[in-house]
């Protein structure tokens, strides 16, 4: 366990000036995700989850405090291609085919597409988009777009993976399937993963630790360890210990 290679968030605060009012999106948030860990971030809408991700990606800068990714600034880490990201909404380019969208990070990072063709095929298969490689995002359903965005997040074989409610638009069954797939991918790659989710069950099933946040101001209120061994099986969803943990997190979310 070495913080050098994971995600380190140090006393970060960030506020936004809206028209007149000031929104304290994050207030003194500290979080360390060790290398190879899987952390789930859960909290009410507007508590600053996406803001944490944006800070960690270098898309935004904190007012105070600092964020380190693999011992580098977020921007350097992003530029070196160590990070992968799937945003809350798929954010596909409407003019690129599914395949081209998946390969976008390669274009930005200046990697050769030819070296990744097999990887693209594998990922398309993984997210179940076979036959839609040449389709444009406008021709896909919301869930299919989200899956394309997940494939895009994985194309660079990232060491650090940020997922912002990646399964939000999927139905329950597909969501479970994708949870299982994600666990498999994660166990293979051991990428340090930060997953934002609204699903308590999803958080427990996937993560080593569940970080519970509260809003106004956005802050971390509890960190709950998830003790289950891996690989976790679907049967876990109906385990009594699972339910107990679900209850604990739900209570933490309620502010108890």
């Amino acid at each position: 366990m070495s913080a050098e290679h994971g995600i380190t968030i140090n006393h970060v605060s960030r506020s936004f000036k809206g028209r007149g009012a000031v929104v304290q999106a994050l207030s003194d948030v500290s979080l360390a995700c060790p290398e190879g860990s899987f952390t789930a971030l859960i909290g009410p809408s507007g508590c600053g989850k996406s803001t944490i991700l944006r800070l960690a990606l270098g898309l935004d800068a904190p007012d105070t405090g600092d964020v380190m990714i693999s011992g580098m600034t977020p921007f350097k880490a992003a530029r070196s291609g160590k990070t992968g990201v799937a945003f809350q909404d798929a954010a596909l380019m409407p003019w690129r085919t599914v395949e081209d969208n998946i390969m976008l990070p390669l274009d930005v990072l200046g990697h050769k597409r030819a070296d990744y063709l097999a990887e693209v095929a594998k990922l398309v298969d993984l997210v179940g988009l076979n036959g839609f490689e040449k389709a444009l995002p406008g021709e896909l359903s919301g869930g299919m777009r989200q899956r394309a965005a997940i494939a895009r997040a994985l194309i660079t074989r990232p060491e650090i993976l940020f997922l912002d409610e990646p399964f939000g638009a999927l139905d329950q069954i597909l969501r479970r399937q994708m949870n299982i797939e994600l666990q498999r991918i994660w166990m293979e790659s051991r990428a340090t993963t930060l997953l934002v989710t609204h699903g308590i069950d999803e958080a427990i099933f996937l993560a080593d630790r569940v970080v519970v946040m509260q809003s106004k101001p956005g802050r971390i209120s509890r960190v709950i360890d998830v003790p289950f061994d891996r690989p976790r099986k679907p049967a876990l969803f109906s385990d009594p210990r699972f339910h107990a943990l679900e209850k604990e997190i739900a209570e933490a979310l309620d502010g108890q």
């Binding site: 990606l57 530029r79 945003f87 930005v108």
Partner: peptide, 17 residues
Amino acid sequence: DRRIVDVVRAYGGRQWK
């Protein structure tokens, strides 16, 4: 679309990219 710009920037792309 700001989200698209964010994706490019999330991979270290700046102004030109």
